[in-house]
């Protein structure tokens, strides 16, 4: 399929010292999708992401970019990282410069862009993340959420086709998370393919098109969010909870298979709408008791 931009095929990776982090992992990333890699902490998600931008090299198996195996010489890696941007979980690992503007300008300059072009890109990236006002602030005086946005702006200024984020919402307060997701949604709508790791089932369910369930170095299943989360067996095996929205929909309809033609609700808003409809319906029937949800 031509729409697969990046794929991992049967990759194994063992850390020096013998800890096996990945074992026979398969993953495909389709163009223009939002893919969540969902798994518990410490299961090797970061290791996987580091493979996707060529920082780590699998001991066996292959990373395929546009269906061609990647080579690990300097030039190929440079070309690869030009297309695939990776944002690390801890922004302090990525921000090296004293002020925000300088830091964001680093990536575009490395691409060999001119000073004028770089300035355009830096300003665009700062605007996209709504941090223009931070441009001449000191990196070390920013909050975690601001640092995260600066780190993302630094990658965004390189205009990658594929943006990989390691736990983008970790450590953010709810408002910061909502803000960040809003920005990412805009990027997605502008055509960027997004891949992010998370241990948050609700985030993966409401926000991703596709979910890969990642346990102990393997992807147990990858598919549409609705399909993956329908598989109770799988969730149990991965020790994951069902997303709260699905849980409620299930109670409401006695199994969400029965819900509606367009499938179970995917967002908080959709769920609330369904709840309201259900309450309204029972109101019309003149049976106040029937507001009681069916079991």
């Amino acid at each position: 399929m031509s729409s697969i931009v990046l794929a991992a095929s049967g990759i194994d990776y063992t850390y020096p010292g013998g800890v096996q982090a990945l074992q026979g992992l398969d993953l495909t990333i389709e163009k223009g999708r939002k893919l969540a890699i969902l798994g518990p902490n410490g299961s090797g998600k970061t290791t996987l992401l580091l493979h996707l931008n060529g920082t780590l090299r699998p001991s066996s198996g292959q990373i395929l970019i546009n269906s061609r195996p990647l080579s690990y010489d300097r030039d190929s890696l440079t070309a690869w990282r030009r297309r695939v941007g990776l944002v690390l979980q801890d922004p302090d690992d990525q921000l090296f410069s004293a002020n925000v503007y300088q830091d964001v300008s680093f990536g575009p300059l490395n691409l060999g862009l001119s000073e004028a072009e770089t300035r355009v890109r830096v300003n665009a990236a700062l605007t996209a993340l709504r941090i223009d006002k931070l441009a001449d602030r000191a990196t070390h005086m920013l909050s975690l959420g601001q640092k995260k946005r600066v780190a993302i702006a630094g990658i965004l200024a390189m205009q990658p086709e594929l943006l990989i984020l390691d736990e983008p919402t970790a450590g953010l307060d709810p408002q910061g998370a909502v803000h960040l997701l809003g920005v990412l949604q805009k990027l997605h709508e502008a055509g960027t393919t997004l891949v992010f790791s998370t241990h948050d089932v609700d985030l993966a369910y409401t926000w991703a098109d596709q979910v890969a369930i990642f346990v102990k170095g393997r992807v147990l299943k990858q598919g549409d969010a609705a399909t993956v989360f329908a598989d109770q067996e799988l969730l149990r095996a991965a020790r994951l909870k069902t997303p709260l929205i699905l849980d409620i929909a299930q109670v409401l309809y006695g199994g969400w298979h029965a819900c509606a033609a367009d499938g179970p609700p995917r967002s908080r808003a959709a769920l609330l709408r369904l709840l309201q409809e259900s309450i309204d319906r029972s109101g019309r029937d003149g049976e106040p008791e029937s507001i009681r949800v069916r079991r």
Binding site: T55, D92, D93, F96, S97, Q102, D103, G107, L111, A135
Partner: peptide, 25 residues
């Protein structure tokens, strides 16, 4: 450890041995 992770972070941003940045004008 930080140095090692930072190397990864910089590599992801196309670091090739030179820390070139622009300052605000």
């Amino acid at each position: 450890e930080r140095a090692q992770r930072m190397e990864t972070g910089l590599a992801a941003r196309g670091f090739q041995g030179e820390l070139r940045v622009l300052t605000p004008q």
